[in-house]
Design a protein around this nucleic acid. Structure first.
Lengths: 192, 192
DNA sequence: TCGATACTGTACAATGTGTTCGATAGAAAC
DNA sequence: GTTTCTATCGAACACATTGTACAGTATCGA
């Protein structure tokens, strides 16, 4: 029920279901959408849905894991200088992300990807600590706080009709978090 | 259906229902608990439940709003010097809070109380800004980030069997957040 | 004691979920 | 072009949960 990628019909069905979910999410909260709604909108049989996905959440995750991953890759301070690309990416698909924020879908996706996100940030942080020096604070906790703050900022930004530019949001994040991280981990500040 | 406080029977029923919810939350995730489970455990008729509460969430909120409020009052940096009392309070009722964190109930309560929490923090922050000076950053965003970080730390602490003392957690929070707040709002640092 | 009201227990309709299965249409393989 | 897969359909099914209704009973407060 999952090695169904090759067949053109499967691709079609998956596309229809994803599209229906997105369309519905723009109209109403994610958690109020039923599987019945989705298959009605997609014009797909009930059993067909279950041939592809376990449940509604599986559909959401399957379709947005890649989106979230690209979001991390854009924004991860470990590989990129800042969060501006992160916010630009969100801005370019604001309808989708607004829908995700409104309906609580973003929290679900965050939970699913948290391990990934956190690992990424933790690696970044550990690279900042001089070798041999024991961390002055739990690095995983700091990483969680960073990821959480990023999410909070993202939500606030979308909820308030994006009143600041991606560059300003990036600046805000750095001003708010970096001094504390430097102090907590007892490291020397990196590049601005 | 709500002015039912005086009658001893009502108090009894409410007590039974709250107790059943808490007991069940210790055993299994909040979101997996059904109303049927609750009334079975409480030994209360189905219609009686609906005579008191609208749904499961209403029961949760009704019973824990006071708990959460006291939590804020303990921890609010606006009225208290630090978060140590906050973490001590959680520690003293760790079973309950662990259950809330595990089952996702804490997120629900957080959403319900967020307006209250945020207002409290915002007031505190605004008091730090010299009169007449326009804030250098959106104060409500900073407040949200602070509240979010407090919640993140709370979850981490409980998920990791509380490896640090309440005083250390307080210290960590201040070291992590205060420098950034001072920098972002362009204010002078307050008492340690 | 008596009137008010909270509780019980059951039945009920409505909704959503996930599964099953034979028939059909469409894809891929040759 | 024929054959062989296989994805889809559609309907039926069992099941769980929710929220409401109502008549009888128990308990409360005065």
């Amino acid at each position: 029920m999952r090695n169904t990628k090759a067949d053109r019909r499967s691709q079609r069905t998956r596309g229809l279901l994803s599209g229906a979910l997105v369309a519905l999410m723009v109209e109403q909260r994610y958690d109020e959408i039923t599987i019945q709604d989705i298959i009605n909108r997609a014009n797909v049989g009930r059993s067909t849905f279950y041939a592809h996905y376990l449940d509604k959440e599986d559909l959401l995750v399957s379709n947005f894991t890649r989106t979230i991953d690209s979001l991390i890759d854009h924004g991860d301070p470990g590989t990129r200088p800042g969060l501006a690309p992160f916010f630009r990416h969100v801005q370019s698909q604001q309808q989708l992300y607004k829908a995700l924020v409104r309906g609580g879908g973003i929290d679900l996706l965050y939970k699913k990807s948290q391990a990934h996100i956190q690992r990424s940030i933790k690696t970044y942080l550990e690279a900042l600590i001089p070798a041999g020096q024991p961390p002055a604070a739990p690095v995983d906790l700091i990483a969680e706080c960073m990821a959480g703050t990023m999410l909070t900022m993202l939500k606030w930004w979308l909820d308030h009709e994006m009143p600041r530019s991606p560059e300003e949001m990036d600046r805000l994040f750095h001003d708010l978090m970096l001094p504390g991280i430097v102090a907590t981990l007892q490291i020397t500040p990196g590049p601005p």
